[in-house]
C-alpha cells in the first residue's frame, strides 16, 4: 500500500507516493535523484548517508522515508547558498579533508549539526562528534583540521554579523 509523503529537501517541497519499505536514503537518491548522499554500509555504521532531518544529523539508511513525512531535510546538495560554498565545504577543500570523497558528504553534514551546537570545539570533541562517520582514506587527521578551520571561520562570520547588527542599532 502506497503512502503519500511530503518532505522539504534543500528548501523544495516534494510530495511522492512511496512504499513503506523505502528508506530515506533511497528516497533521496532514487526517487529525488539527489545522489550526493551516499550509501556506504547500509547497516547504520559508516555515516556516509548522513543528512540533516529537522536539523539533526541522521543516518538516512536507518530511517524510513514515511517517517520523514512533514520533515525538513538538508543534504550535501543544500549546503552551498547561491553558489557560495558552505564554510565546512571550503574548509574540507583547504585542509585536504578528503581523498576519495565517498565519506565526505556525511562527514560535512555531521560537522554542520555539531558546529551548530558547539561553536568552538576542542579536537577531542570533534573526534567524539565524528565517531559515527567512517573514512578509509585520510586517517581522520585532516578531517579534524577541516572541522576546526570551519569552526573558526563560522565564529568569525558570526561575530562580523553581530558587529554589523550592533552598528545599525540606533
Amino acid at each position: 500500500m502506497g503512502h503519500t509523503v511530503t518532505v522539504t529537501v534543500n528548501g523544495t517541497s516534494y510530495s511522492r507516493e512511496i512504499e513503506p519499505t523505502l528508506l530515506l536514503v533511497e528516497f533521496l537518491r532514487e526517487t529525488l535523484a539527489l545522489t550526493g548522499t551516499h550509501v556506504g554500509c547500509d547497516t547504520s555504521q559508516c555515516g556516509a548517508c548522513t543528512v540533516l532531518v529537522d536539523g539533526r544529523a541522521t543516518k538516512a539508511c536507518t530511517m524510513l522515508a514515511v517517517q520523514a513525512d512533514g520533515a525538513t531535510v538538508v543534504t550535501v546538495e543544500g549546503l552551498a547558498k547561491n553558489g557560495d560554498l558552505h564554510p565546512i565545504q571550503r574548509a574540507f577543500a583547504k585542509e585536504h579533508g578528503l581523498q576519495c570523497g565517498f565519506c565526505t558528504p556525511g562527514l560535512m553534514i555531521t560537522a554542520v549539526d555539531f558546529l551548530e551546537r558547539n561553536a568552538s570545539p576542542s579536537d577531542a570533541e570533534i573526534r567524539h562528534a565524528i565517531e559515527g562517520n567512517l573514512c578509509r582514506c585520510t586517517g581522520y587527521h585532516n578531517i579534524v583540521n577541516a572541522i576546526r578551520t570551519a569552526s573558526a571561520e563560522m565564529r568569525q562570520a558570526a561575530s562580523g554579523e553581530a558587529k554589523i547588527a550592533a552598528e545599525v542599532q540606533p
Binding site: 555515516g47 532531518v53 539533526r56 544529523a57 541522521t58 543516518k59 555531521t110 562528534a129 565524528i130 559515527g132
Partner: peptide
C-alpha cells in the same frame, strides 16, 4: 550511546 547520529534518533 552509539554515535552522534544514533543519539539524534
Amino acid at each position: 550511546v552509539g554515535d552522534l547520529q544514533v543519539r539524534a534518533r
